[in-house]
């Protein structure tokens, strides 16, 4: 058997490998691109969910921009004050203002038990798609559809669909990136300041009579809350009460007065923050 060809093959392949390896090693020295070490540090401090709420292409994109000084250390919406502080420490500067963190809130109390459906939706479990079929199966054309698009979209896993058919948002995990706000086809999720606990949990602009006929928990626009509020913080506009967060002092009188119970104090048994109430 001719063994010389095996040796030849091994030598050729080995030799080629060695030469190419050496060339690559030399090339990596010659063509080395220096990376700002701050970029990597900032990148590590960021949450890394690539939610895009900052407006830059992912966390890598934001880290580069912050390192260049084109964006403030607090540019990460999802990170909040703590991460802003960390990044400021890396850059050696101070964070100027401390913002009150915002959290996502589902402004609807009409779950499976409260609102009936007009037809049986048998398609994909996606709110946007359900909304396209005759404006959604739910009788209420403003409230939560309950197919969990927000839960699927949340990059932090903070939203879980509850048994009542409404999304449960865990405020400990919520980083106010706003992804769910954009995903919801009915626009019922908003970001609210974390320290404000009294909210109207309804978006329906239907007349009171219509609301009553389809939902037990909807706002009927009766103005009882507007009358009882001592601080001029609640106004009924388009058949829907809205609370001015700047004027509201959290006295909770409106909560007691509301006949349908659509004004709720969060942390006290409301569906979207039940989890939070348990863990606080």
């Amino acid at each position: 058997m001719d063994t010389s060809i095996i040796i030849k093959a091994a030598l050729i392949l080995g030799g080629t490998g060695l030469v190419l390896g050496a060339l690559l090693a030399v090339a990596s020295k010659i063509f080395y691109v220096e990376v700002d070490p701050k970029v990597e540090l900032i990148r590590e401090a960021l949450p890394g969910a690539n939610c895009g709420a900052c407006g830059y292409p992912g966390c890598d994109g934001l880290a580069e921009v912050i390192a260049k000084g084109e964006a403030p250390p607090s540019a990460c919406v999802a990170g909040g004050a703590e991460i802003a502080k960390q990044i400021a420490a890396i850059l050696g500067i101070e964070v100027k203002e401390e913002k009150v963190a915002k959290k996502a809130l589902v402004r609807c109390g009409g779950g499976k038990n409260e609102v009936a459906h007009r037809y049986i939706y048998d398609g994909e479990l996606d709110c946007e798609m359900a909304q396209q079929i005759g404006k959604g199966p739910s009788l209420c054309s403003y409230g939560c559809l309950g197919f969990g698009s927000c839960a699927a979209a949340c990059p932090f896993g903070a939203i879980v669909m509850g048994e009542d058919g409404l999304p449960n948002i865990d405020w400990h995990k919520c980083r106010s990136c706003g992804v769910c706000v954009e995903v919801c086809p009915r626009g019922i999720i908003t970001l609210v300041p974390e320290d404000k606990k009294v909210h109207v949990l309804c978006c329906s602009q239907d007349k009171g009579k219509d609301v009553r006929s389809i939902c037990k928990k909807g706002c009927i626009g009766c103005k009882a809350c507007e009358k009882i509020c001592e601080f001029d913080a609640i106004h009924v506009v388009d058949n829907l009460a809205s609370i001015d967060n700047d004027k509201c002092t959290q006295c909770k009188k409106c909560v007691e007065k509301c006949p349908t119970g659509c004004i709720s104090v969060l942390l006290k048994g409301h569906h979207s923050v039940e989890e939070v109430a348990g863990t606080v």
């Binding site: 060809i5 030849k8 093959a9 990596s28």
Partner: peptide
């Protein structure tokens, strides 16, 4: 060298992989 018939696939894989790495470095710099 008369080894092409059976050696061409590993040799080509080696060359292509090294080449792409090299191109990547050059482009990153240039």
């Amino acid at each position: 060298l008369g080894v092409g018939d059976f050696l061409y696939i590993p040799a080509f894989i080696l060359v292509i992989a090294a080449l792409v790495q090299f191109i990547e470095m050059v482009i990153k710099k240039v």
